[in-house]
């Protein structure tokens, strides 16, 4: 695996939505840690891009943000998924599964030449 694999734009959005769905309200740092942990360190990303994705999602109305206090008593912005975000997540998950299923089948075909 290369040091920093390219993350598809839509994929990062999906990962963030899923994280917020699973863990409830999180700040940007928390989201970055979660993605790092899930991907078992194999996905290294410029953590700044998380914020771009967050802004994008917020503009779509899929997430919502609020200022609060973090675990270490710092002011932090907490993001949470909205009901529209939930719907989008369901749609995107389904999409992803369909596509990855197709890609998977295509890749397996190789052996049957």
């Amino acid at each position: 695996m290369t040091e920093k694999s390219e993350v598809l734009q839509g994929t990062l959005d999906l990962m963030i939505l899923k994280t917020l769905h699973a863990l409830g309200p999180q700040h940007g740092f928390g989201i970055a840690r979660r993605i790092e942990q899930i991907s078992e360190q194999s996905l290294k990303l410029n953590e700044g891009t998380v914020y771009t994705a967050l802004l994008r999602l917020q503009q779509q109305g899929w997430i919502h943000s609020e200022w609060g206090v973090s675990e270490n008593n710092r002011r932090a912005r907490f993001y949470s998924i909205t009901s529209r975000g939930q719907k989008q997540l369901a749609r995107e998950t389904e999409n992803w599964e369909t596509i990855s299923g197709i890609i998977g089948r295509v890749l397996r075909l190789e052996g049957q030449k």
Binding site: K44, T49, L55
Partner: peptide, 17 residues
């Protein structure tokens, strides 16, 4: 390093905002 280019990020945000 891990966070990436903050100036670029800010500019991106300004553009997107």
């Amino acid at each position: 390093r891990q966070f990436g280019n903050t100036t670029l990020l800010k500019q991106r945000h300004r553009e997107a905002r």
